[in-house]
Design a protein around this nucleic acid. Structure first.
Length: 589
RNA sequence: GCCCCCGUAGCUCAGCGGACAGAGCAGGUGCCUUCUAAGCACUUGGUCGCAGGUUCGAAUCCUGCCGGGGGUGCCA
């Protein structure tokens, strides 16, 4: 165990720490440093069993080995040096050298009050904000968005929200596929049809027709190739159609983003074409660094450690043998631009896991070029959405599923549930709830598992009222809101001091105080499922609390005020947590 | 061939160096004159793919194997 690598957990500087984990880590580290003259990771964890208290400090066993003393003695030494004031009720050494910590109810209550009076709900802003470029969504021009774009868009947007909430400067980058040889056939086809590229109802049809003709009609294919040259050469009428095509596609994307509730805006678009003017200088720089050489007619980089089928070095092809630049050149120009112009200190590529190899090579070359000094470039990989047959998700006819159709079906299915469960709501409100539940269901289902894994698309599960789903979470939130409205009508006001007595009350409070940690670890790992797990825990603990702890009918006014405050904080944590995931929380449902 | 990812309860998955492995779904048993039952409580269910190794301690780290998926020079 390396004692020098300490967990970096941001804490607010607003006085008393409200996150028990952060508090214990700070106190644990201080105690260890004081006792042993150097810091070790105190290894603070939530206790899995009630008998072991609320938290445990597990570092003693590892430290014992380092300092050559018995583990229980080390544990006791840590306990002796712990300075936690009135935060703890009981600290004891147990087993081979565990330190079990039970927090004092009064401290927990005060911490909840502090979180409730904080606009950030106890979530600290990072001490050292980074400039984080997040590359996500990135659909292709002249194609409608389909399921293949769902994951990047949804995961990327959740990450962007989380990072922004923590005070990082986030730069969204929608790396549109707006350039490449396919535009030759598309534009040539437009010309043949007498179209200028605007107002196209069915982009997919356009693409399919063009692509069909390209395959079947050699003279068309020849003209398409010439059209590519014209486009690259900046021919005005060709460029005008290309522009129109891009603008038309963007209109479609904007509609999709609006329906999905995604924060991407037109200004975030920096498509492949944006880098055209930077390709020459990017490649020239790599050449001057001696990183490129000709191989089989192509200009390549050979980052160390990558070998192909036959064991020979594997190239990253920067310039193709036909003289044109490939996607690697664009990606290299983009990484350079993001570091130099956007001043990124962290770059996250929310892209399909299947491109892992490409990104590994890309980062390796960028590293060799010296572009990643002090910059973390990460491939935020995600798995494939599968159909019931275990193959990539498609329609019964074998076509890709259009995102617009998928979202429509989600809302329709949700609407049926709403009509069944909440007939008392107005039509307009039912429709709004159906949208929130349907879209939220799709998004949450995409977020709640470890992103690198594939998952099987399943309508029934993502819209299920029970279990770890968006509807369950939204419902939990809505019932709290309902209760709070009633409290207000009855003139009851949430107020401290917060009583932490009942086991369910205590469990809920501990969950609420974990918000800071949940958001920070999500940002560190760029894994939204961690936040999902957290939000579900809060909702579960709340419903348990709700069953066993009367709020409005609490046995005393003081208890009622206290529980109202806990409930109000719960609603805000749920709403904020879900909002960070990009999911709406209706007031009633 | 080589590289990457995955293999945990019937199903879908958390956990990824710490005390007897957790949750949801499905199954079983209860709970609506009481704050929204789109809910809750209790319960059945596991050689953590297999075999070695490191460690006081391994589902978690290392090695090898088995099974599944993906990638592997001019598409992105």
């Amino acid at each position: 165990m390396n004692g020098l690598t300490l967990p970096v957990r941001a804490t607010d500087d607003g006085g008393q720490m409200r996150d028990p984990l952060a508090l214990l880590e700070a106190a644990g580290t201080a105690a260890i440093t004081a006792a042993f003259g150097r810091p070790f990771d105190p290894v603070v964890r939530r206790s899995q069993r009630e008998q072991f208290g609320d938290f445990q400090i597990n570092g003693a066993m590892a430290i014992a080995k380092e300092v050559g003393r018995p583990p229980r003695e080390v544990a006791q030494t840590i306990v002796d040096h712990l300075s936690l004031g009135d935060a703890v009720e009981k600290v004891e050494v147990a087993g081979p050298g565990f330190v079990n910590v039970t927090l004092r109810p009064s401290w927990l209550g005060a911490a909840v009050e502090a979180a409730a009076s904080d606009a950030r709900l106890g979530v600290a802003v990072v001490g050292a904000p980074e400039t984080v470029v997040v590359d996500y969504s990135s659909p292709n021009v002249a194609k409608e968005m389909h399921v293949g774009h769902l994951r990047s868009t949804v995961i990327g947007d959740a990450l962007v929200r989380v990072l922004g909430y923590l005070g990082h400067q986030v730069v969204r980058q929608n790396h549109l596929g707006d350039w490449g040889t396919q535009f030759g056939m598309l534009i040539e086809h437009l010309v043949d049809q007498g179209l200028d590229g605007g107002g196209i109802a069915d982009l997919n049809a356009l693409y399919q027709e063009a692509s069909q003709r390209f395959k079947d009609d050699e003279s068309f294919a020849e003209r398409a190739r010439k059209r590519v040259v014209a486009l690259q050469g900046g021919d005005p009428s060709t460029l005008a159609r290309w522009d129109a095509l891009v603008a038309e596609s963007q209109r479609h994307f904007e509609m999709g983003y609006a329906r999905l509730g995604v924060t991407l805006e037109p200004g975030d678009v920096r498509g492949e074409s944006f880098y055209n003017s930077l390709l020459d200088e990017t490649v020239a720089e790599l050449e001057s660094l001696g990183l490129l050489r000709m191989d089989e007619g192509a200009l390549c980089a050979f980052p160390p450690g990558f070998t192909g089928r036959d064991g020979t070095p594997l190239p990253l092809i920067v310039r193709k043998s036909d003289g044109g630049y490939g996607y690697a050149a664009t990606d290299l120009a983009a990484i350079r631009y993001r570091v130099r112009e956007l001043r990124a200190t962290r770059i996250a590529y929310v892209v399909d896991a299947r491109q892992g190899h490409h990104f590994a090579m890309l980062f390796a070359v960028a590293q060799q070029a010296g572009w990643l000094e002090g910059v973390r470039a990460e491939h935020v990989a995600f798995g494939t959405i599968l159909g019931p047959d275990g193959r990539p998700f498609r329609t019964r006819e074998g076509d890709t599923v259009k995102l617009a159709d998928l979202l429509s079906e989600a809302v329709e299915r949700a609407a049926a549930v709403v009509a069944d469960k909440s007939p008392e709501l107005s039509d307009a409100e039912q429709a709004a709830v159906a949208r929130a539940v349907g879209i939220g269901g799709v998004k949450y289902f995409d977020l709640f598992n470890d992103r690198v894994k594939d998952y099987v698309f399943d309508w029934d599960r993502m819209l299920a009222k029970e279990g770890n789903t968006a509807p369950y979470l939204q419902y939990a939130h809505a019932r709290i809101r309902s209760m709070l409205r009633r409290a207000e009508a009855e003139g009851c006001v949430p107020a401290g001091p917060v009583v932490v007595e009942h086991p369910a009350e205590r469990a809920l409070v501990l969950a609420l105080l974990g918000f800071n940690d949940a958001v920070h670890t999500t940002a560190q790992h760029l894994e939204p499922h961690r936040l999902c797990t957290y939000v579900f825990e809060v909702a579960s603990e709340f419903t348990a609390f709700y069953e066993s702890c009367p709020v409005l009918r609490a046995e005393s006014d003081a208890l009622r005020s206290s529980r109202l405050l806990v409930a109000a904080l719960t609603a805000r944590v749920l709403a904020t947590g879900l909002d960070l995931l990009g999911i709406e929380t209706p007031e009633r449902m």
